[in-house]
Nucleic acid binder design. Structure first.
Lengths: 218, 218
DNA sequence: CTCTCTTACGGATTTCGTAAACATT
DNA sequence: AATGTTTACGAAATCCGTAAGAGAG
């Protein structure tokens, strides 16, 4: 095999046609090839994956569990390859067609408006969604959105582009009735109730870390 | 080109390595090939796509707008190919690792529980989300979820499996104080306020169609 | 001058068609 | 028997390395 995956797009195309058509002869006709080539292609695919995808000991051919799993993945891969190919053919990269932005609710008013204006100058359509930043990471990685404004830089994914747009200090908010002097947080936390973000959110973790730092020196 | 896309997975791998490494020599080293092969592979890719991806008239090499677009798609395709390949290598299709289900809120209690029990018998982890059925279609197609329970059968996508699980009659709910006889809807709608689903939702459209049928005979 | 990319050429590999043998119903 | 799949074999296309030429800085 000339790549590290055990399959290439051509092999996926053949496999899908066999499954859709129910037999190799039909697949061959649809793809403009001989049935023999189809058979060889499938045999190679199964050898490279080291997995049986179809059960040829019965007619009509039956798909195995592994084959059904692979078929689903293959459809998705081919669909994406197809749309990518079409986008390249069209060849319009100067102006995007539809830019989808996701940001946390709290930033929608502060950053949302100027960003929307900037995006509007370069695109025809755009849309904006809000929600939890963790969802947005997923959405960006699955290409459901194009831009996220997030406290999570997703550093594990080198293919993303990042731009620092905002830096905020942590603020301690106290009741007006509070008169004492604030030098350390430790006694304050014992004295007053403390409202903070949930510990499983990214911002919550950073606050906890910050508190620990101020309390213990690290 | 032996497939209809203008590229194969190998070519994407080469292209990404050139972009990541910044030059062909580094890419060649990383891929265990000669720099010459890299050059040819890229040249072929550009020829097949009929698009210039990199600007070689400057050092270091610069990526074009089309190239940046293609790079993003290529990363996604390769990432999916990689995870698919790994899943096939592991070869465990008898028990899924994590099944994600999405259904409309109104069905969560009625169907959710028995479905969850059934899924639990065949999987290790599972999760369930609710929301609008239109979102669920998208989520299924982008493989963010594995199962949806929906009124939209997504008939445009032959690669999906469908199972009819529930059939509900349309109900007309009237105030207790209403005493007249109901034979036709037409006079009733003029007489009373009518609460229905929004017209842009799928269920709303079906209700409208049903009303029109009952009123006009079609 | 140095580093990097392109091009010409040829061998190795892969892909695909023909034709005949083999399998399933 | 009819329909459909595998296998052997060879031609064509593709991939990739060597080596020499071309271009950028």
């Amino acid at each position: 095999m000339h790549n590290s995956f055990g399959f290439d797009l051509r092999a996926l195309e053949v496999f899908i046609q066999i499954v859709d058509g129910g037999n190799m002869t039909a697949a061959a006709e649809r793809l403009g090839m001989t049935q023999s080539s189809i058979s060889q292609s499938l045999a190679n695919l199964e050898k490279n994956l080291d997995t049986q995808l179809l059960d040829r000991s019965v007619r009509p051919i039956e798909i195995t569990r592994a084959g059904r799993f692979f078929y689903d993945k293959a459809c998705q891969l081919l669909q994406e390859a197809r749309t990518t190919s079409q986008a390249m053919q069209k060849g319009r990269f100067d102006k995007l067609r539809h830019v989808r932005i996701a940001l946390v609710d709290s930033l929608a008013t502060a950053v949302g408006k100027p960003l929307a204006d900037a995006v509007k100058r370069h695109t025809e359509q755009w849309s904006m969604t809000t929600g939890l930043s963790h969802m947005h990471g997923e959405a960006l990685l699955s290409r459901t959105v194009d831009i996220i404004i997030s406290d999570d830089a997703l550093m594990d994914y080198p293919e993303l582009s990042r731009f620092r747009i905002l830096r905020e200090p942590f603020m301690l908010v106290l009741p007006k009735s509070f008169t004492g002097e604030v030098k350390q947080l430790e006694p304050l936390i014992k004295q007053l109730d403390f409202v903070r973000y949930p510990a499983h959110s990214l911002i919550g973790q950073r606050i906890e870390r910050n508190l620990r730092y101020r309390r213990t020196g690290w």
